[in-house]
Design a protein around this nucleic acid. Structure first.
Lengths: 181, 181
DNA sequence: ACATCTTGTGCGTTATAACGCACGATGATA
DNA sequence: TATCATCGTGCGTTATAACGCACAAGATGT
């Protein structure tokens, strides 16, 4: 696991919001000097300070601690539909998001030893997985749980979750995302 | 957004691993006294300290910052036993009808030379087919149309439609029915 | 019973997070 | 040009994170 890139994520977040350090300090209740120190990597903030920042920026806390694969722009798109898995594991769109139906469906594949962790979707989003071929694990509540061909799993996608393939065969699964209308 | 529940999450994680404070300190490189302070909510750790803990515990950092409304709720759905009714084809319920989501999902199978014609569903019902294995035909607008493994088809199910397998191999497909809410 | 080990807590010390403020640089305006 | 406002950085001070150590309580073994 890589060390969290707080400095970069904070700088990126602030930039995208178009906040000066002063404005950011005003919105978050964290001093301008401290925000600057964090961005320059001169200080490691406490979780309480990070929370104040995230709250003031109206972004998930995980956006600030994420490991650099997902930027704020991605996170912001999480509030819009459809959600794309760019630069991630292999997938094929089976049914694109349809507003009338409220779902989208993908055929996903995982190479051997490949894994992917998703940031949380909007509140209320439900995700279905149906394992088409192979043995895979799904990250639910911080625990990797095993599933095999034919298994069907429904879980809340508004928390962090992930998929991984610890076998040496390709895994394929259907991924259906239900958005609350 | 709720304040992160670091104290509770740390205590839970340590408990699940079966670590004493001493063992946890050893594994994480964070002092026993500090771990105790964090668990009792007497101190708010820096992100660097949290990262050391997560790394030492081999868990995602987000597990420690998650907001406490984690429901370890997911459902392993698929019924184990395939069902076969008279005058119908074999199927297995993957996700039963859920009013909140408005869909149901089945894994269907067609023996060689087997066919099935459905009576029309209610007005507005949409049906998705994803061919998992084999070559099949679907009756759409009075015409049998061929589809193969990997094909995904969406059609209005409020008119007559059907499925048939004119090959000598078993065909399997996912059948998702979307009811208008 | 006693000795030893383990466990979690509290305390004093050290390191650093977090702050308010001052300042130089930059840009805008009169 | 002079003035003002904004920006980000650095500094000294205060608060607290993080530590090593000691200790009381509990568990275990003889």
């Amino acid at each position: 696991m890589k060390q969290p890139k707080i400095a970069k994520n904070l700088k990126t977040a602030r930039g995208k919001l178009g906040f000066s350090l002063s404005k950011a300090a005003e919105e978050t209740g964290v001093s301008k000097a401290m925000l600057g120190q964090v961005e320059r990597g001169e200080s490691s903030p406490t979780i309480a300070t990070l929370w104040k920042i995230a709250k003031g920026f109206h972004i998930p806390l995980s956006t600030l601690i994420d490991e650099g694969n997902i930027n704020l722009e991605y996170s912001r798109q999480a509030s819009e539909r459809p959600l794309k898995f760019e630069n991630s594991i292999g997938f094929k769109i089976l049914f694109p998001y349809d507003k009338a139906i409220g779902t989208e469906m993908y055929l996903m594949s995982l190479e051997p030893e490949e894994s992917h962790v998703s940031i949380p979707h909007d509140v209320g989003v439900i995700e279905d997985i149906v394992v088409i071929k192979g043995n895979m694990e799904i990250l639910l509540d911080g625990v990797w749980t095993k599933f095999k061909t034919g298994d069907a799993i429904r879980f809340k996608a508004d928390v962090e979750h992930g998929y991984r393939n610890m076998t040496n065969e390709i895994v394929e699964f259907h991924n259906i995302i239900h958005y609350k209308n």
